[in-house]
Design a protein around this nucleic acid. Structure first.
Lengths: 198, 198
DNA sequence: TATTTGTAAGTAAATAATCATTTACTTACT
DNA sequence: AGTAAGTAAATGATTATTTACTTACAAATA
């Protein structure tokens, strides 16, 4: 039996992300993808049921899971609040800086109904958002360090500025000077932390 | 000469926004739109050059401009910082609560390259983001009330949580209980303000 | 006042391109 | 030698946009 060529599988994913980042999700077609990956359209259908299946797997496996893993690196739920949030911010920043394509698809997750559905299902399955972060926040609510908000609200307050600053980072990459550095990011992080403390 | 039927023009815009909100931008087709609006596809092309022109005008005129107008209602640049930010948050909340369709297209503006380009062009043209808000922030930087960040950074810190909470509001509308009320929103706004104060 | 007329608005149906997916076949490995 | 992986080319549906025609009205004419 002829064995699977794993390089082709990876090429499909990498080039799909690339097309989405450069031309938009609405301009990704199976035939364009096949051509760019130097394979036959049929090959994509050996690895994925259909376009929807490809997109959902791309979103969940290449974007959400990879981001989760990167952001939780060296993070423990019993860290000091300020230290923990800074760790999460810097991990997220480092990850997306090197994975702009994943960042773009993640942004599509907020608008495209298809990806949104996939996101909500994953969130529900794994007990809302990133387990260790939830435990970390609960711990600090109980300890009285921070305000007691619903965790969906906490996520919005603590991490949506990071995502927005990430967008700015990429925008400013095409301009003469970059305003989002690790230093300014940490100042922003300080502001967000200060707002959450009791 | 036969006069333009303005109702048809409005139907095109309203129903386009509706389809985008319910089925996604990627599922809006000219023929589907024409059918839903009870007109001929040709009629759309009398009012818009092509699909791109329609989408960009929809985004700029029905979403960005309408949002800007709504958010600046009763806002003056010389307001007290906390009072001003709360006004902007509550205006934004009230607007999007009643304009979910516009909110969805606004979110697409962050991912779709087409809309993103349109957004940046508009931003540049009108001197970055919403004039009175910039003056307001500059005033408070000079007065020493708040930290001195680049205005793109200030926007991320002050308003991205609101947009994220808006998303949560719509998510929770389909669940048993709503966690985003005007009360919780104001508490969040307080946290954001506290983080920005010197 | 009543009727004609010029013209942009509007329609139904066609067009050509492009799409996701499949068919019929070939290849490469166990 | 058997079989899943892979290919090139086709299929039928759907797409944005256009063609060829009709309609409705304001202004000009009688």
């Amino acid at each position: 039996m002829r064995p699977k060529n794993l390089e082709k599988e990876e090429a499909i994913r990498t080039i799909a992300l690339q097309i989405i980042a450069e031309e938009g999700l609405e301009n990704l077609t199976m035939q364009k993808l096949a051509k760019a990956a130097n394979i036959s359209p049929r090959t994509i259908y050996i690895k994925y049921d259909n376009k929807e299946d490809l997109l959902v797997k791309l979103f969940i496996e290449e974007v959400l899971s990879a981001y989760e893993q990167a952001v939780l690196k060296d993070f423990q739920f019993d860290m000091d609040f300020s230290e923990g949030i800074k760790k999460l911010w810097l991990n997220g920043f480092a990850y997306f800086k090197n994975n702009r394509h994943a960042f773009v698809l993640m942004q599509y997750g907020k608008s495209s109904p298809l990806l949104n559905k996939a996101y909500q299902q994953k969130s529900i399955k794994q007990g809302d958002f990133f387990g260790p972060i939830m435990r970390f926040l609960e711990h600090h609510v109980v300890a009285g360090t921070i305000r007691n908000f619903h965790h969906d609200i906490q996520r919005a307050l603590l991490f949506s500025p990071l995502i927005d600053l990430m967008s700015e980072y990429f925008d400013y990459q095409e301009r003469p000077e970059q305003i989002i550095t690790e230093e300014t990011l940490l100042q922003c992080c300080d502001a967000v932390i200060k707002g959450m403390l009791k």
